[in-house]
């Protein structure tokens, strides 16, 4: 009984630790005063200002576009790579796995500067495209990591049976293989999208002047004092994701049944 209470208290403490900053930001988004240190009364003005601030909206659009495109491209490349890796010999498979591990295990700052040097060397124009290429690069490993176990578990006879029954390879892939590995692809996509959304370091080194994501915009404001609109925006993002997750969890989904 006591140990049960202790367990609850421990989880609650960690929860407070993890969510205290979230709570702080939400409170600050309603703060009349621009200073972080004092409470100047309740206001919605930052939310209203947010919607008419073209610069912030543009940064938001950039962030979402980069996250969406990079996660989609990473999903396609990652999934077909997994299909191929499954048929590979041990040597080529471990080499490819090793290379895939590099962006995951290497320090973000090193990945960031290595890509910066690459773009500098080829005199690429730093901007949306360079950020996008970099994000795809660090997203592919997340997709491979979440699709690979699904492919390994898959029964290869299903695919062969489909071929024997006259399906073309493409048709068999979409009708038999893809439904089987879909949960892995989906969680890879979500992981990649989240990583891209939250990334600052790699974007910092691969962005060009004039193109900003929310992260780089916030970083530029850190020293001057952050515009409270940013608190309002992140509160909105946080609340919408929270609602989305609750809805997904509440849904009597058939998927969970199938997994069991």
């Amino acid at each position: 009984m006591i140990s049960k209470i202790l367990k609850r208290v421990y989880i609650a403490l960690i929860f407070v630790f993890l969510y205290a900053p979230m709570f702080t930001l939400i409170v600050l988004s309603f703060n009349q005063s621009k200073s972080r240190a004092k409470w100047g009364g309740f206001t919605f003005k930052w939310y209203l200002a947010l919607f008419s601030d073209r610069v912030v909206i543009q940064a938001l659009i950039n962030t979402l576009l980069i996250a969406l495109i990079s996660a989609l491209v990473a999903c396609v490349i990652g999934t077909i790579t997994c299909l191929a890796m499954n048929r590979m010999g041990n040597v080529s498979k471990s080499i490819l796995t090793g290379v895939t591990n590099i962006p995951m295990l290497n320090a973000e700052i090193v990945t960031g500067i290595s890509l910066m040097l690459l773009f500098l060397f080829f005199k690429a124009k730093f901007g949306f495209v360079t950020i996008l290429l970099s994000h795809i690069t660090f997203n592919i490993p997340y997709v491979i990591l979440s699709v690979m176990p699904r492919i390994r578990k898959m029964n290869p006879s299903n695919y062969e049976a489909a071929l024997d029954l006259g399906a073309g390879p493409l048709y068999a892939f979409f009708k038999v293989v893809l439904p089987d590995i879909w949960p892995g692809v989906l969680s890879g996509f979500l992981m990649a999208f989240t990583m891209s959304l939250d990334d600052f370091i790699i974007t910092h080194f691969t962005k060009g002047p004039g193109v900003d994501t929310l992260s780089t915009k916030i970083y530029a404001q850190v020293k001057k004092g952050i515009n409270p609109e940013m608190y309002a925006l992140s509160t909105l993002i946080f609340i919408s994701v929270l609602i989305l997750l609750i809805l997904i969890n509440r849904m009597p989904s058939g998927d969970k049944e199938k997994e069991k």
């Binding site: 900053p21 930001l25 959304l197 939250d198 916030i218």
Partner: peptide, 16 residues
């Protein structure tokens, strides 16, 4: 979930 609130803002909140 916390990752959906920007990493920089979360760290900055600790400043506060």
């Amino acid at each position: 979930l916390p990752m959906w609130m920007n990493f920089l803002l979360r760290t900055m909140a600790w400043q506060t």
